[in-house]
């Protein structure tokens, strides 16, 4: 789905803090930050990744990014255990800008309760309406 200038692939689930989540075939969930986040942040120059084996809760800050001298949050969209982090970001943090849904993924989580937590994430029409609200805020605040 393309909303204004932002790409938001239909098959992904979205958290209100602009994280995306994708259920993979093996039951694990790949996580990254969406196109709105990367455009709003500007060029990402550093990523402070979480650590493998860390447990996270939905909505919890689990890492940070720096762009334009700004320190922003990486938020876990679901609860579970982090089983993989994208170490390529340590060498090239700009992957978050260049390819937010591909090479710029952040981590893989073994979810503790995907079925119930996915209900709190957004997909489909809810994404469109949420993004429109975000853009409206952008116009009013900016």
């Amino acid at each position: 789905m393309k909303i204004a200038n932002y790409d938001l692939p239909d098959e992904l689930y979205y958290h209100g803090e602009h994280a995306w989540a994708k259920l993979e075939d093996d039951g694990r969930v790949r996580v990254g930050m969406n196109d709105f986040f990367q455009q709003a942040a500007g060029d990402v120059v550093y990523v402070d990744l979480p650590f493998e084996d860390d447990d996270v809760s939905a909505g919890e800050t689990c890492g940070k990014v720096q762009s334009s001298k700004w320190v922003g949050k990486l938020v876990a969209p679901i609860s579970g255990t982090i089983v993989e982090v994208n170490e390529d970001l340590e060498g090239e943090s700009a992957l978050i800008n260049k390819d937010p849904y591909g090479a710029g993924w952040i981590m893989v989580i073994q979810p503790s309760d995907w079925e119930s937590e996915k209900a709190a994430l957004m997909q489909g029409d809810a994404v469109a309406s949420w993004m429109k609200d975000e853009m409206k805020k952008a116009e009013e605040g900016g």
């Binding site: 709003a40 922003g72 952008a138």
Partner: peptide, 14 residues
Amino acid sequence: NPLVPPTVDGVYRK
């Protein structure tokens, strides 16, 4: 807060 622009650049400028 509605005063907060959603982009980093917007925050700096405002």
